[in-house]
């Protein structure tokens, strides 16, 4: 069982010590720029000239590059093959074989989609690598996001490996009762209920107990919550966030203006 379940890497850096909301705002504005900003190469530029340098500044460069490549390379390969070959309305054929032909419109579309996804995923990756999840949640609830919403997000993250372990036990228990889980499709479908049933039922029991447990810890008490972990913030960062918000709005405005003309 993993001792920790989060991407967070605890290190001392300028990026780590930024307010979590600043990093969240950065992630969102980079994504908006990548999707709605001008130019085919803007997303790639954002990746190489903003995200990569920030990850190095945050001392998580190695992990950042490794994870972003590992997650995205297979997706890119798939996108390029599918879009360059099947992009509807592609006319400029680059090469063709048998009944397929790759069009330059398809390649451009694939490149645009892939680089946008690259920015989207890696912006969040940078946020997660340099931000303690509790800090982010605490900061959000301090700013008025309902505590139950941030609770659901964090607890779901933690519950997944527990559910997996439970699923293995259930499978063992049912196989011990002679359930054949392998083999043909009919067998597999038939074995679904004995495997999923206990998982659902026992989760329902757990949910009630957990609700009691967090109530007992004053979770719904109507007072302003505090945070164990000190969450840094400054005037400078607040200004920065406003600038990013303005930039995002301008980008969206620019896109609307374009589409109207």
């Amino acid at each position: 069982m993993p001792d920790r379940l989060s991407f967070f890497i605890p290190r001392e850096s300028r990026v780590h010590s930024l307010n979590p909301l600043t990093k969240l705002a950065l992630a969102f504005s980079l994504i908006i720029l990548a999707f709605f900003g001008p130019g085919l190469f803007l997303p790639v530029a954002l990746y190489f000239f903003v995200l990569v340098p920030l990850s190095l500044l945050g001392k998580v460069g190695k992990e950042f590059l490794q994870t972003s490549f590992r997650l995205l390379l297979p997706l890119f390969a798939f996108l390029f093959v599918m879009q360059s070959l099947f992009y509807p309305g592609g006319e400029t054929v680059i090469f063709s074989f048998w009944i397929f032909s790759a069009t330059s419109e398809g390649v451009v579309f694939a490149f645009r989609t892939a680089t946008r996804i690259l920015v989207m995923v890696s912006s969040f990756l940078l946020l997660l690598l340099t931000t303690h999840p509790s800090t982010l949640m605490n900061d959000l609830s301090r700013r008025g996001v309902p505590a139950s919403l941030s609770y659901i997000i964090t607890s779901t993250l933690q519950i997944i490996p527990q559910m997996q372990a439970r699923a293995v036990t259930i499978q063992d228990a049912q196989r011990s009762r002679g359930l054949d889980t392998g083999g043909n499709l009919i067998n597999r479908i038939r074995s679904l209920l004995p495997l999923v049933g206990p998982l659902v039922f026992s989760s329902l029991v757990d949910v009630e107990e957990r609700a009691i447990a967090i109530e007992a810890r004053a979770f719904t008490l109507p007072v302003k919550k505090t945070s164990l972990i000190d969450i840094p913030d400054s005037r400078g960062e607040a200004v920065l966030r406003w600038v990013m918000a303005a930039l995002s709005l301008m980008t969206i405005g620019y896109r609307i203006w374009l589409s109207l003309n």
Binding site: F8, I159, A213, A218, V223, T226
Partner: peptide, 24 residues
């Protein structure tokens, strides 16, 4: 197992959870 809040990543933070909710 069901008494762990699920929203904390270390025992230290887990214990502080109730105090955060009390606004200490």
């Amino acid at each position: 197992f069901n008494q762990i809040s699920g929203s904390k990543f270390t025992v230290y933070e887990e214990i502080a959870f109730g105090l955060e909710n009390l606004g200490i």
